[in-house]
Design a protein around this nucleic acid. Structure first.
Lengths: 117, 117
DNA sequence: CAGCATCCTCTTTGATACTG
DNA sequence: CAGTATCAAAGAGGATGCTG
């Protein structure tokens, strides 16, 4: 796997953060994990809509490798998997929440602009 | 150009934000613009280090199209270009600052872990 | 259900050369 | 200096089939 995208040696803190959360779906996954605490593979896939099974699995694996989330497998039939944030992963809450808040503003603004045009 | 990456119709606020700032270098560019207020093409390129001229130009253009930054050209010789945040772009400050803060924590943590190992 | 492996396609990105 | 144009290489991501 690749994974080293940014030159974090340079010390730019934003690049360091991006190194962890810049995957296409990672922030969205974290957003749902902050809201629900526990998520299953299937529920995440429903929530994300446009994210394929393959992509979702990849993003989850990277988050797990980076110790942002944990995965617990229940080997039943059908099997079930639980994902949740680690304590360390929870420190990302301010970042994700800031993103969510800005996005809400943005959505409002867009709605308003459509009315005006 | 492509540009529509996420299904923002679904209403997920995090996806809306990503739609604007998820370009590989956008957050980093915004970070420097928040610190310096005015940046030139060359200074940004120095700050970003690993970002090619081509990439930098692309990212700046997209940010400009999304009305996050403005570009002012001084047709001197040598020419000079100034980039700065729009008022709307400045509303991204909390997001970028949260990212910067988390990244600083992360860098500290990494330094500490290296000592321990 | 929750994934991994494979194949295949479309993008993204870096290198390079050129311009006002 | 601040870009743009072009080309080739690398990577991202979808579709599908297989597994426990």
């Amino acid at each position: 796997m690749k994974r080293q995208i940014y030159d974090c040696q340079a010390g730019c803190p934003v690049e360091s953060t991006l190194q962890i959360i810049s995957g296409k779906w990672k922030s969205v996954i974290l957003y749902h994990l902050l809201q629900d605490e526990v998520c299953h593979f299937g529920s995440l896939q429903r929530d994300l809509g446009h994210c394929s099974r393959r992509m979702l699995a990849l993003q989850l694996k990277e988050l797990e490798q980076d110790k942002i989330i944990t995965k617990t497998v229940f080997a039943a039939n059908p099997p079930k998997t639980e994902y949740r944030l680690t304590a360390w992963g929870q420190t990302l809450a301010p970042v994700i929440q800031a993103m969510a808040q800005w996005g809400e503003n943005y959505n409002q603004r867009q709605k308003h602009m459509n009315r005006v045009e």
